[in-house]
């Protein structure tokens, strides 16, 4: 093992230890709030792990969605779900059950570890074939090629899942709130640090988000990561009270939400005509078509994530004044 091999091993070991420590803290933390903070830390450490595993796309996604968006949602929820300590302590299982659960979970983890170690080391994957097939499509990033071309159906179904998850979240509100604005109303702050951040950060964030979405076809990045950054910018402005969430019944919001998957379906169906089947791209037009879909998807992902963070409408619709 060369010197930097050893160093890399030490770094990986340290990183793994930190990740597990953060995970342990998330479980063992006394209250929900510190646990959530621990989870955000865990997410960032995990992003480093993904970089070490040679998956920059996934590292970006983990940072943006796995840690960022999930962290925001959980923090908002922890703040609003205070109380119920005695109910929680009553429902916590006794020592024997905890021990048994620990043993069982440990056994499953151990079996999994053994199985992972027993996996064939030069795993029979599709790395070579995927990489080889990406270039003729005019794409640089094999992950984008897999997401948009080879396994396009997965991405399509997943974007449809996002759309109707938003509707599912909206439908959790009581009937009288239908038509109202999603999520809590933040007071408008005209001065103070948050107002400064809300005015300074979004322009920079928009540029970065669009850049990441744009560069996705050739370098690590893509619609999910870019979309999340755009959504984050909207959340910052919304939290500072500078913008209001659009009404649930607003036709424009629904069009934005549905744009991505609908464009994907239409291009897919067009594939019957111009290419040799559903979701097939004619070689010449592959890249431009994919970029069109990516743009629409970025828009939809941004809208969907922002609305998922906002949550169901909490007030009845204001009478049209």
């Amino acid at each position: 093992m060369t010197l930097d091999g050893v160093l890399a091993g030490v770094l990986d070991g340290l990183l793994a230890a930190l990740v597990l420590a953060a995970a342990g803290w998330t479980l063992a933390a006394p209250a929900a709030f510190p646990a959530t903070i621990g989870f955000v830390g865990f997410g960032l450490l995990l992003t480093l792990a993904w970089v070490r595993l040679g998956a920059p796309d996934v590292a970006l996604t983990e940072a943006a969605i796995g840690t960022g968006a999930t962290g925001v949602i959980l923090l908002l929820a922890v703040v609003r779900l205070r109380g119920g300590e005695e109910e929680v302590s009553a429902a916590t299982p006794g020592r024997a059950l905890v021990l048994a659960a620990g043993l069982l979970a440990g056994a499953v983890g151990l079996a999994l570890a053994l199985a992972v170690l027993a996996l064939p080391d030069p795993a029979p994957g599709l790395a070579a074939e995927a990489a080889a097939r990406t270039a003729p499509l005019g794409l640089g990033n094999p992950v984008a090629a897999v997401l948009m071309v080879f396994r396009g159906l997965d991405t399509l179904l997943e974007s449809v899942v996002l759309v109707f998850t938003v509707l599912a979240v909206w439908s959790m509100a009581p009937d009288r709130h239908w038509g109202g604005r999603p999520g809590p109303e933040f007071p408008r702050q005209d001065d103070g640090p948050l107002a400064l951040l809300a005015r300074l950060l979004p322009p920079v964030g928009l540029v970065i988000g669009i850049y990441i979405a744009w560069v996705g076809t050739d370098a690590p990045g893509g619609k999910f990561q870019g979309g999340t950054i755009l959504a984050a910018m909207w959340v910052v402005a919304w939290a500072a009270g500078l913008v209001q969430a659009p009404s649930v019944a607003d036709r424009r919001v629904r069009l934005m939400l549905v744009a991505g998957p609908l464009v994907f379906v239409l291009v897919g169906l067009a594939g019957f005509g111009i290419a040799d089947g559903f979701l097939a791209y004619p070689p010449a037009l592959a890249k431009p078509l994919i970029l069109v879909i990516e743009a629409a998807m970025t828009l939809s992902v941004a809208a969907a994530l922002a609305l998922l963070i906002a949550g169901p409408p909490e007030h009845p619709p204001e009478r049209v004044t």
Binding site: V149, F150, D154, G271, G277, Y281
Partner: peptide, 12 residues
């Protein structure tokens, strides 16, 4: 039906 014209294992 191979979606997108890509037969498995690469395609769906």
């Amino acid at each position: 039906y191979a979606v997108g014209g890509w037969a498995p294992p690469l395609g769906l």
